[in-house]
Every structure is written in structure tokens, then in C-alpha cells.
Design a binder for these strands. Structure first.
Lengths: 335, 335
DNA sequence: AAAAATAACTTAAACGTTTTAGTAAATTCT
DNA sequence: AGAATTTACTAAAACGTTTAAGTTATTTTT
């Protein structure tokens, strides 16, 4: 049995209230008794039961974090951002990986609510978060982040995908490229949509015709990039001089296809990705890509939640949009 | 204010005890009242307060997980193994990233104890876990895992590094290699030591002279691999025909150095890594390496903790050693 | 020296549950 | 019909804390 305040009280010959006060450094307790209590508590190896304390004090310092797939390279870093700030403010984190499964998301949200987290930070599985809102019922603050955020949400921290794509395309046009194709898996999230729009804008600014190739056969990542690139290479009269991929994995896939077709990167065609996942920076790959402020996303999300928790706790309707940065490496060059 | 059993009781005109029974499907409650209570509880959007329940029932279903750095590619997958099994058994996970900092490790261990987790799974920052044992005082079960486990620990799940290295070296000798050098950053963990021993054994079995190059100038990962390889290329009369690196990042570094020296992989020298981090399998890299059963480490750790929690909860002194597998790709070839 | 103030405690209620023991009413038994 | 049993509840204690209010004994004030 773990030892409690009562055990200390008994051993010290005082009341539990006295122990509580001594332990919390409150005033009305004598120096001698205080020291005695502290000594005994140390001897017995007492650890305060925070959850019992929270019960009476109301309010606790646990936050829930929901992530669709922690092994997707962006999330560990976001979590570290959250974790760091959480440590700073004394929060403890309940983390669950939903595995991109809506049922799991539902289940974990309930678990978190039952565990009386003070607030939630969720990177939702799907664009539709109505079941989350319903379960939470505005009882605690919630912040959304990640790839499935959209303008309809009340509070989220996101990244300016439009601007990120614009950066990528401007880089390419600046190098003299005119036939730039964008490859994409599907278009069913706002994140993807914004990147496409940014690309369109970047092209139109230079008077170039946008050319978006969507491969929505259900493939993802490398395989999708490879399939898309292969089909582009086969189907067109002129091959593009540059490719802008929806994400780094697709960019890698495209590079594989180019390699397979005997084309050199960036000699024959330049490639730009999006995300800056860890291996993008490996010298063997050297992918030019759009970096996301991952750590900062986590920090900001926690910071906002913290502010709301300190304040009224209501919906803040705070949408924070962070800015991505272009990382120029070796897969892009002059046309 | 979140609504409680009392609120439901008041609205239904019954006692809190009746509500509790109805909600938990206990027998001695009338059908009519049960339905009324259930209806009202649904209407009010009641969510049980699990932590209040745990207080009276004793024992809870929260486990603590401590990880040194969640952005190190192996950990997300381990966490998913833990997470999956946790969901299955109804555990909730408190996760903290210690950032490889001993002070943080201490702090988070206390936090977890104060939050009355039922058990702990920790991948320690250092080989010495005495401060953890001291804080935990055998009050709850604990399982160690990760890179800093050693035989002195009472309960851990680890990987057979000795055998993993043996696999790597046998592969190389099987291809006809005789001058195989192992490169290593330092030798201060059992994990590293075991890999070196496995390498030694593999060499000696074939009557070859082991050749371990330790670069302990404080460099890590790619930089260390590059530095080590560069020095080997400069300092020896005969260059080795194969390199076995302590880990994948060092292998990548070594490949960079080889490339810089105009040597082809695997034409001139074969390279084997260890860990099988995600990009090892990219076709551009195609690193032959030793894979670790990451997901299974997580699963096993949770499974063992669960068994102990169901049982006596005492030290199990269970050491589970999982087996690694060789992943042969394109950086190795016949001499 | 009596009254007032202060120091150092203790008592008891509260937080949101569960559960044991108790109770009144309805039903079954003989 | 009266006793015994069952049904459907309620009362109260418990879990480990905190805290407002109460109680002594001691010190200070006048």
C-alpha cells in the first residue's frame, strides 16, 4: 500500500490537516512539527497523490494529445514542441495514436474526457471533427493542428500551405523554369487544396499555365509519385522541366521514376518536395523542399491552450498560421 | 461545471447510489428507473469521472511511458506497439520525452508517480537507473527498454545485439569479404559493446582478424561515420573491402566519405548498417542493415507490464530478448 | 490580572465516485 | 393471514486530499 498523509499523521502524532499544511508550506504550523513531519514524510518515501488533490482543488494539469500516426516524421517533432512547453508550465501529457482510424479517435476522445483532461490538442483523422465537438461539448478547450485542419474550425494552429507552395514555385520560375507540373495524390483536404492554389498563383503571376496532375487511384507517397511521374513521362509530348510534388515522399517517388527513365535530376528536370522530412537533407538525396515549423506548431498549440486555460477557457477562435520556409538543396537547378 | 452523478440523481429523483448502479449495469435496480436514469444521463451529456472512481476502487489504468527522444526514428514505432496493446487492454498512456536529460528524467518519473500511474515503461537516458528505482521504491512495476538496457536490470525487453552483429558480419563473410572493419562512435553502452562482440565473434569464426575503429571524439551519427571512414581511408595501406557501422546514420556518413574518395558502393566497398531506420529502404540508399523489431518491443513491454499488473505486481525479473533480422539491400555485394 | 490577540493546532466537510449495510414495500410461501 | 423472502431502493462510509471554521494554550495588551 502506498503511504498517505494519514500514515504520516499517525506516525507524527498529528492530524492529517497538519501534515497537509506542513507539506504545502502553509503558515500556521510550528517549526518543530513542520520539520518532524517533513522528516517522517521523507523517511516513509511519501509521494503526494496529485489526483486526489485535484479532486478537491478542481482543475488539473493533464492535457490530452491525439495524433493520427506518430511514426509519420512530422509528428514526433510536433510532440516535442508540445512536450517542452508542457514541462515548462507543469502539464502532464496523455498521448494516444489513433492510427488514422475514426473509431479509435472517438474512443480515445472519450477516454480523455473520462480522465478529465484540462484541455485537448488534436490532429484529427478527418476534416470532419463534429463527433469530437459533440463529445467535448465545449466543456474543455480544444486546439486542432496537423494536416486536416480547415477554416471551419474554431481554434487551430496551421501552416500557410498556400504561401509554401508559392515559395516553391517562385524558386522554380526564378531558375527559369516554365513547364512546371505539380503532382498530387488527391484533393480532399484543405491542406492539399491550398498547396495547389499556391502553385496556381505562382504560375499565373509569371503568366505560365498551371498543370496539376492528380493521381487519385488510391496510391500514396512514393508509389503515387512514381506512378504519376511515369504517366507524365509517357503521356506528354514535351516533358516538364520541373516537378513540384505535394510532399517529399511523392518527390522521392518522382525521382525514382525519372531515374528509371534515364533522366538526370536536376540536369534534365528539377524536383521540389514539401515537408522536409528528415532524409530530405541527406546529401544523397538533397531534396529542395518546403520546411514546416514542426516544433513551433507544437509549442504554439500548447501555448494557446495554456492561455485559454488561464483565461476564460472558452473558445478563442484563434487561428494561428505559421510560415513555412524554402530549403534549397541539390534537386533544383537552372533549366 | 461538468455534470456529476449527483446532478443526475437530483433530476431523476433518486439517490446517487441508484444512479451509480444503473450506470454500471448492476442488478438491484428497477427497469423503469434504470431507463429513466440512462435517459437523463444521456440528455445531460454525462461523462463518468474515471479518476474519482479510481480513487475509491483503487488501482487505475494509466501507464507512464518515458522516452529519451521521440524524434529518433525507432521510438515512434515502439510507442505504436505500446499504444496498440494499451488500447486492447484499456490502458491510457502518459508519455514524456526526457530529451536525453537526466534532470528531466528525474522530474518526469516523479510526475508519473504523483499521478499514480499503475506501471512504468522507461527507455532510460543512461545506463544507471538507480535514481529511478529509488523514486519508484518497488511500489509499481517497471519495464525498461531501448538502447540503454543492460543485464543488471531486473526487467527489460531488449534486442539481441550480439546476434544482430553476427548476422551482419556473416552476410559479409558469406560474400567473400575478409577485410571487414567495424566503425563505432564510443563503447560506453552495453548495446554497443554487444554489437562489437558479435562482430568479433563473426570474424573469429572465419579465422579473420577483427578490426574495430573507434572514433570517440564526441561526434555522433553521420558526422562520426564520415570522420571515421575518412581516417580509415587515409591511414591504412589496404582499404577494407567492407564496413560494418554501429548504426545506419554512421553507415550513411561512411558512404559519403567513400563517395568523396571516389570509391563505389558496393563495387569497391560494401557497407552494412544497423537499425533499419526508415530511409535505409529508399531505393536511392538501399542500405543493407540489421532491422529491429521495434513494434514488437513496444508490444512486449506492455504485455509484460500487463501480466505483472494482473498478477502479483512484483518484480518479475523477466528479461525478454527479441531477435533482429538482416535486411539485405544494395550496399553489399561480392568482393 | 483580566481581556484580547495570536500561534498551533484539530474537526469536519468537500471533491465524485462505489459499495456495504440497512429499510420499506411488495411478493411468495405455508 | 402471518411469516419469510425478494425487490428496489437509500444512507453513509470510504478513497486521499484541502480548507474553512473551531478550539485550545500561550502570549500580548491595557
Amino acid at each position: 500500500m502506498r503511504i498517505t498523509i494519514k500514515d504520516i499523521a499517525k506516525k507524527a502524532g498529528v492530524s492529517p490537516a497538519a501534515v497537509s499544511k506542513a507539506l504545502n508550506g502553509q503558515p500556521d504550523i510550528g517549526e518543530a512539527t513542520r520539520e518532524k513531519i517533513l522528516r517522517i514524510s521523507r523517511e516513509l518515501g511519501y509521494t503526494p497523490n496529485i489526483i486526489a488533490r485535484n479532486l478537491v482543488m478542481k482543475g488539473n494539469k493533464t492535457l490530452g494529445v491525439l495524433i493520427p500516426d506518430i511514426s509519420t516524421p512530422i509528428y514526433p517533432v510536433i510532440f516535442q514542441g508540445i512536450n517542452e512547453r508542457a514541462g515548462k508550465y507543469g502539464y502532464t501529457l496523455l498521448l494516444a495514436d489513433t492510427g488514422r482510424d475514426l473509431g479509435n479517435e472517438r474512443k480515445f476522445i472519450s477516454t480523455m474526457m473520462e480522465n478529465r483532461v484540462a484541455g485537448l490538442m488534436v490532429s484529427p483523422v478527418s476534416n470532419d471533427v463534429s463527433h469530437i465537438e459533440e463529445a467535448v461539448r465545449n466543456q474543455i478547450p480544444i486546439i486542432y493542428f496537423g494536416g486536416k485542419v480547415n477554416d471551419g474550425m474554431e481554434d487551430y494552429v496551421g501552416v500557410d500551405n498556400y504561401h509554401g507552395a508559392l515559395l516553391a514555385v517562385s524558386h522554380l520560375t526564378g531558375l527559369g523554369h516554365r513547364r512546371i507540373v505539380m503532382i498530387c495524390d488527391d484533393l480532399n483536404t484543405k491542406t492539399r487544396f491550398d498547396r495547389v492554389e499556391g502553385y496556381r498563383k505562382g504560375m499565373e503571376e509569371k503568366g505560365l499555365a498551371p498543370d496539376v496532375f492528380v493521381d487519385d487511384e488510391g496510391l500514396k507517397g512514393r508509389e503515387c509519385g512514381m506512378a504519376a511521374m511515369t504517366r507524365i513521362l509517357r503521356g506528354r509530348r514535351e516533358i516538364p522541366s520541373a516537378v513540384f510534388a505535394l510532399n517529399d515522399l511523392m518527390a522521392i517517388g518522382a525521382m525514382e521514376a525519372l531515374d528509371g527513365a534515364g533522366l538526370r535530376v536536376p540536369g534534365d528536370v528539377s524536383v521540389v518536395g514539401y515537408d522536409d522530412i528528415p532524409f530530405a537533407s541527406l546529401p544523397m538525396i538533397g531534396l529542395t523542399t518546403v520546411w514546416q515549423p514542426k516544433f513551433q506548431i507544437g509549442e504554439t498549440a500548447l501555448e494557446q491552450l495554456h492561455q485559454r486555460l488561464k483565461g476564460d477557457g472558452g473558445r478563442g477562435n484563434h487561428k494561428t498560421i505559421l510560415q513555412p520556409e524554402l530549403r534549397i538543396r541539390t534537386t533544383t537547378g537552372p533549366v
